[in-house]
Design a protein around this nucleic acid. Structure first.
Lengths: 214, 214
DNA sequence: ACCTGAACACCGTTCAAGT
DNA sequence: ACCTGAACACCGTTCAAGT
């Protein structure tokens, strides 16, 4: 009568935690684009096909990675005032995505809320609850969350997938036709500086104010 | 003394307009994901490598496609009132992206404003100009545009890349822990219905109000 | 039980050679 | 001046066979 179940067959060469750790270090070292099944297997010193005994497919791997990351997130201290609570919770989401922007790729891909783990859902619940406390109906509160979510994930995606110096180099910001595009022409080569300023907090505040004011 | 330059060498089997038209019909028929260099070449009855004599690379092809699409957009009638003008211009952008959601993939990838053609930039200029008319500085006006852009592109990306019925099928919305996620538990299986409601116009209005109010 | 190599059905892109 | 096939360096995934 063995206390632990007898192991049979060939011993495993890797494990789920090992795979997730390797994936994380691969992303952190070489970037999100370089995380492929084949490279990950090579990193682990195993054949690509072996990975499929531990994860269903690549999408499943990414979700496990995401939920593990969410579990490590610090839980922010939440103010009592509903409006401030929304801003703090949304900012915590934004900070989490800034730290791992590739997560936004997954979250804007696949039915966002239902795929998140408990810790990340806690922030969703916080925002919905705070909107209810601010006098919204539950349906309105979900709409509040969704608007904030679109703004947040959009900011992350645009900020991290774009406007490398290379993309801007081709563009002559002083060449806008002043009769057709007067304001862009007036801004001219100040655009790149203005477009890289961090305006997330101000925009978030404005959005929350607009959503909660009658 | 020839009036037109003499043509020499092998005659072309295709042209830029033909390539763009084929790419457009391929996207419309089979979806954005199916637009590959090789499939496009097959559609045109030419070798994949021939395409590289007409476009620099795939990215270049996509940009040409995008700018051509922007050129076909209807120009909306713009109200005098600055706040309304912003809403109308942003809605026109949103409508354009709803009609061709894959465009959002490119626009959230590569330094968005500088890559757009004149017609699409006209909407950018409109929003910046209206924000100036509403009393903002030029720097603030750019921030207004950017916030609206993040919200808009985020909505499109999330809406079109997510929550197919397949994604939701795995999720039990009645299983949220009521002590840890009280509001999500209270919403329960109403979430999918609430999450597919079109809240873009209301959220946009709220955002614009928040951005323009002092 | 778990691992493996070979294979399938693809990608984008380059380049020397052909017409 | 333009086209072509072959080739390079990759993808994610399946599956029969091995230990």
């Amino acid at each position: 009568m063995p206390a632990t179940p007898r192991r049979t067959g060939r011993p495993p060469v890797t494990s789920r935690p090992q795979i997730l750790a390797a994936a994380r270090s691969l992303i952190d070292a070489d970037g999100w684009e370089k995380l492929t099944v084949r490279r990950l297997a090579a990193e682990l010193g195993i054949g690509p096909t072996t990975l499929y005994h531990h994860v269903r497919d690549k999408q499943d791997l990414l979700l496990q990675l995401l939920n593990e990351y969410a579990g490590r997130l610090p839980v922010p201290e939440l103010p009592d005032e509903p409006r401030d609570r929304i801003v703090v919770a949304a900012t915590a989401m934004h900070d989490a995505l800034t730290g791992w922007p590739w997560a936004a790729e997954i979250l804007a891909t696949d039915g966002f809320v239902g795929l998140l783990g408990d810790p990340a859902l806690h922030l969703v619940d916080t925002i919905v609850g705070a909107a209810v406390d601010a006098g919204r109906t539950r349906a309105q509160a979900v709409a509040v969350f969704r608007s904030i979510w679109y703004y947040t994930v959009g900011e992350i995606l645009v900020r991290f997938r774009s406007v490398g110096p290379a993309a801007y180099r081709d563009i002559d910001f002083t060449a806008f036709d002043p009769t057709r595009l007067p304001h862009l022409a007036a801004i001219g080569d100040q655009w790149p500086a203005l477009a890289t300023t961090d305006t997330y907090p101000a925009g978030l505040r404005a959005l929350v104010d607009g959503l909660l004011d009658d």
